[in-house]
Computed example of a mutant assay.
Amino acid sequence: MEKEHVEIKTPEFVTLRFQLAGLGSRAFAFIIDQLILMMSAIVLILIVYVIMFGQLHYRDYFGFSYMPIAIAIILLFVMQWGYYFAYEYFSGGRTIGKKWMGIRVIQENGHSLTLLSSFIRNLIRIIDSLPVSYLLGMIIIFFHPKHKRLGDIVAGTIVVYEKSKKRKKKASTLEKEIERRGLLKENLMIEDWGKNALGMEEWKLVKVYGHRFLELPMLERKQLTEQIAGILLPKIGIDAEGMSDYDLESTLLLLYLRLRDEWEYEL
């Protein structure tokens, strides 16, 4: 089951092939995440214990309150649910356990996980955990053809293996240029409508640009940058008019970083 694949056709009629993550890898990722949550819970319980123990000595002066216990219970619930929701949305579909196992959650159409999908997927986790130890979720994953639990079915998501982190020699030159400019993907904010306008074709275009522009003579490099920027930047609401050649190049490299995480898989 671990070797099964799923094919996704994009609106640009490009077929993407992902290797599905099966029950084994997902279970190990879950165990790692639960160990992290367990250690966090132990720390929280110890803090509450110290607070409650301190109250026994000073209750004649300050009274005695069960409020720390109530707060701890609420925090434990928020940690258990919020950990998966926050990590999967803000870390590209990866919790610490998933990152360790080399898997991630994506939309069934091949796009990155959205805020709504992450919310729904992890809200249904409460049902998947029934009756004990995620038994229902594991049974559904085992029998579902795409290894989905109930949360995946409702949210329209799948769990896939990530691409190997190996880079070609040319890519290392590009990475050095990106590092030299101090560019981080977080520097480019894209609205949801802009993300929807970017697909596999846009990724292929900006990828070719990134691997070629440093090798070109300055005149050809300027022409290529203006041409690619004129195609891609309007799709995310950026007006390229008046921008310097350096700023145009940096913006396209930021777009490269953003799209790389979404589209560069082991296909």
Rank of each mutant, 00 (worst) to 15 (best):
V132E: 10
E175P: 03
F119Q: 08
E4L: 14
L115G: 09
I231R: 12
F64Q: 04
D128C: 01
I73M: 14
A29P: 09
L113M: 07
E215T: 11
S172Q: 14
G22P: 07
M200K: 09
G82R: 01
Y84R: 01
K169M: 06
K146C: 05
A72I: 01
V6F: 02
D152W: 13
K99L: 05
L184E: 01
W263R: 01
A171E: 06
M243K: 08
R17W: 03
M38T: 13
L198R: 03
L44H: 01
A86K: 00
I71T: 13
K222H: 09
I124G: 05
M39V: 15
I47N: 08
F85I: 04
A197T: 03
T10A: 07
M218T: 14
L259Q: 04
E162Y: 06
T15I: 11
S164H: 11
F119K: 03
L116E: 11
F77E: 07
W100K: 06
R121L: 11
I139Y: 13
I69L: 12
W193I: 15
D245G: 10
S129A: 10
V14P: 00
T114A: 04
G210P: 02
I103C: 06
K207G: 00
S117N: 09
S250V: 11
S25L: 13
K222F: 04
G110W: 06
Y61L: 15
T225Y: 04
A229W: 08
I124N: 05
Y246C: 01
T157I: 13
Y265T: 05
E241Q: 13
M67L: 15
I51A: 13
I96N: 01
L232N: 00
L35A: 14
G24E: 09
E264V: 06
V206Q: 06
L205Y: 02
G110K: 01
S117T: 09
I228M: 05
I120W: 07
I73F: 08
H5V: 14
F53Q: 12
S250A: 15
I69E: 08
I236W: 09
Y89M: 02
K98A: 11
S250I: 11
A72Q: 04
A41D: 04
F90K: 05
D245T: 13
F143A: 10
I158V: 15
I42R: 00
I51E: 12
P234A: 04
Y49D: 08
L248I: 01
I106L: 02
L184H: 07
V48P: 06
L224A: 01
L198T: 00
M67F: 15
D128S: 02
L255N: 07
R17V: 09
F64T: 07
P217Q: 07
I158F: 13
D128L: 03
M38Q: 09
F142Y: 14
E179T: 10
M218C: 06
F30G: 09
G110Y: 05
G237C: 02
E215L: 14
E249F: 10
L214S: 02
I31E: 05
